[in-house]
Design a protein around this nucleic acid. Structure first.
Length: 281
DNA sequence: ACGAGAACCTGTTTGC
DNA sequence: TGCAAACAGGTTCTCG
């Protein structure tokens, strides 16, 4: 489910709910996530104060006092649900980790597929954490520009779709926002990365930034509603131009479903790709 | 080193 | 309606 904008939204929701408070209780119902939770995970969280929450790629870094970082990745199906500790504890299936603050907030990590993961480690080791080191620049940060992308794409024969999904190239894009960014940049997902060239690289960088910024904004507005109602963070449906729109008219060129018209769906790297074959080259 | 594909796991949607 | 296949927004491993 979550790509960069969703993770950003979850982080903001957690920050509002938790920062400044201490973790009064941590319950591990199932520790075999994508990787097993580390030894002493629950005890390490208990009693710690939440000082800050940062996002790096699709990871959340919950900075605790005592020099610890609680690392969270939501995987494909991970969700964070906020409720009140005043309610009775009544876990649903796939509620794997439950954390309660002394401020009365209960945070439930639910993840049916268990592709998500958590870790707890000393903050001074953040620089050499293998998971965090495996990611490229933040797309909304200063290190991501046409020069960088051009250099990264040099000589690469893989399609732009696979290239942009590679977290070492740029951090935080997933299947949805790659499709949306390529559409916005008018670039075919099948184009070989190495054929990008400067002008297209500039367009692509701009499109990636714009698509993510829009989605984060949309997440911010849904956050206000969700925190008050369902308590579920980060699950929002931004309106997409091409993702999931197979067979529908292209929003920009209005081409319709014939041989060459409408939004097409193809499979690349075992994932669905949506694009407008008429506009994207 | 790179790229393609399978694998991890479970729930939901689609198709016959 | 029922059942099986396909599919799901992520990452990582293996193989060529």
């Amino acid at each position: 489910m979550p790509e960069l904008p969703e993770v950003e939204t979850v982080g903001r929701g957690l920050a509002t709910a938790l920062i400044g408070d201490r973790i009064a209780r941590a319950i591990v119902r199932r520790g075999d996530l994508r990787r097993p939770l580390p030894e002493g995970f629950g005890q390490g969280l208990t009693g710690a104060r939440v000082d800050a929450i940062d996002r790096h790629a699709k990871y959340l870094l919950v900075r605790l006092d005592r020099g610890l970082i609680w690392l969270i990745h939501l995987g494909m199906s991970g969700r964070m649900v906020l409720t009140s500790t005043a309610e009775a504890l009544d876990p649903s299936p796939h509620d794997h980790v439950i954390v309660e603050s002394d401020g009365g907030v209960r945070v439930t990590f639910n993840d049916a597929r268990r592709f998500g993961l958590m870790d707890l480690f000393p903050a001074d080791r953040v620089g050499d954490h293998p998971l965090l080191n495996a990611t490229g620049p933040e797309p909304l940060g200063g290190g991501f520009d046409a020069d960088y992308l051009l250099a990264a794409a040099e000589g690469r024969t893989s399609p732009l779709k696979a290239f942009l999904l590679d977290q070492k190239v740029v951090a935080g894009l997933g299947n949805i926002y790659v499709a949306e960014a390529l559409y916005r940049a008018r670039l075919s997902p099948r184009r070989r990365a190495g054929t990008l060239g400067r002008r297209r690289a500039e367009r692509l960088v701009e499109a990636i930034r714009a698509v993510l910024t829009d989605a984060i904004e949309a997440g911010g507005s849904t956050l206000r509603d969700y925190v008050q109602s369902s308590g579920e963070l980060g699950y929002f449906q931004h309106r997409f131009a091409v993702y999931g729109k197979e067979g529908q008219p292209c929003p920009d060129c209005h081409c319709v479903v014939e041989k060459t018209g409408g939004i097409a769906r193809i499979v690349q790297s075992n994932r669905s790709t949506f694009f407008c074959p008429r506009l994207q080259h």
